[in-house]
Computed example of a mutant assay.
Amino acid sequence: MSCVLTNYTSMTTTPIPCNPINGSANLFTGQVQYTDYGYEPNHAATYAFLAIFASGFAAHVLLGVWQRCWWTLPTLAVGTAVEVIGWGGRLWSIVSWRWDPNQGGLWSSNHNGFIVQIVCLVIGPTFFSAANYILLGSPSYVSLHSQSFSLLFICADLTCLVVQAVGGGIAGTANNEEGANQGGYIMTGGVILQLIVTVIYLILFGEWVYRRHTDLPSKRQYNPFSFTSRFARKKHAPSNIEDSNNHMMSPMTNGSQETHATTKPEDGLIAPPPFRSEFQISEKRIQIMCALIAMGTLLIIIRSVYRSIELLRGWSGPVATDEPLFIGMDALLMCLFVWLYAAVHPYIAFGRRLF
């Protein structure tokens, strides 16, 4: 048997002694060596989380279609599907796990499976953030104008998604560790940007809760899309009263059939005042949605902090090669998010919506 040591920087090979003994210490490092992960992915955890996220995906698709809450499909359902693909990548790594006698002997797996799980598990929660941004709707109590609230945060979310995807593409096509780390740093930029956007959203959400509780609407609201909205009104002015009503309704409140009394008329979870009798929802359900948004946002922030630290330290850093930490700070948190939003589905606040 002939073995070689490959230098991926210069793409040259050097003949070296082979290590045909499975699982033995590497001839050069004196320790058991792994490629990509830095450890062997836990089989039981991989199968368990794959099943949990797959069932969560099915739950969100069924709930979204059954309750006709269509906006949850491209957010909650798609985000969960991306998580499923990511865990499928880890499963791919497990089934391709083998002992490589080259380079002193090390455990290796299909590199594509590693890239799939990294990219998908990093960008998946971006879709969950979008669900939170849409869920709050168009609040009139905060300093940001209601016409710009969801649009601004969703645009920022899409930017984060693109940056992370570009970084993942660079990391996946890199021929050496330096190139892979460069892609990782770009992904880190996307994760940090998402973290900043989420924190800003949380601040505005806190302002909304406070002002709504004290009944103190913001006296001045900033609308960064004011020119766009004026242009849209000129181009697409409602042709009759019915169209005007539909134009004014928040996409998050359209079609709600609740008729319970509420304590606050101006609300991101409630339609504009002229339509309150038809579209208002109960105060209890608003409180449930507030708790859901707060909990979901907190989970995303904790996970984003962990991912930022992980990617900044590199693929072979101590954080990235710690599987229990990954399971606790990413897998469990996102699993909790998926099933929390399935158990307390946004439908309970917005009722059955046709479109």
Rank of each mutant, 00 (worst) to 15 (best):
E283G: 02
W315Y: 15
W87L: 09
L161I: 03
V119W: 08
R353D: 06
P20G: 00
P272S: 03
I293K: 05
I85T: 09
F28Q: 08
L121F: 02
H247G: 02
Y47V: 14
I115S: 00
L73C: 07
T321L: 10
F114S: 08
L62S: 07
L193K: 00
L299I: 13
P41A: 12
W71H: 10
I52L: 15
Y37T: 12
E323P: 14
S109V: 07
T13W: 00
V199W: 04
G189Q: 07
F205V: 03
A294E: 01
C3V: 07
A261N: 13
A165S: 14
I21L: 03
A261M: 14
G86P: 02
M1Q: 11
W87T: 02
L333R: 01
Y201C: 02
T262M: 10
L63M: 15
R353P: 00
I52P: 00
D215Y: 11
D330W: 03
W339E: 05
F275L: 13
L269T: 02
H43Q: 07
F49R: 04
Y210G: 01
K219F: 03
F275Y: 15
V338I: 02
F153V: 08
S282K: 05
G184K: 11
T297M: 06
T29A: 11
S148H: 03
A331T: 15
V82L: 14
R98H: 13
S2K: 14
V199T: 05
L135I: 08
Y47N: 07
G255S: 08
F227G: 04
P101S: 13
A343M: 14
M329G: 04
L332I: 15
I301Q: 01
I123A: 03
S24N: 12
S146H: 11
R212K: 13
L27P: 11
F231C: 02
L312G: 07
C69G: 00
T259S: 10
V305L: 12
C290W: 01
R211I: 09
G183L: 10
I281W: 00
I286D: 01
A51P: 02
G30S: 11
F326K: 06
R68A: 06
Y141D: 12
L151D: 11
G56W: 00
A271T: 07
I200N: 04
N22S: 15
L333P: 00
L354M: 10
S239L: 13
F279G: 03
M289L: 06
R303M: 14
S146F: 07
N110L: 04
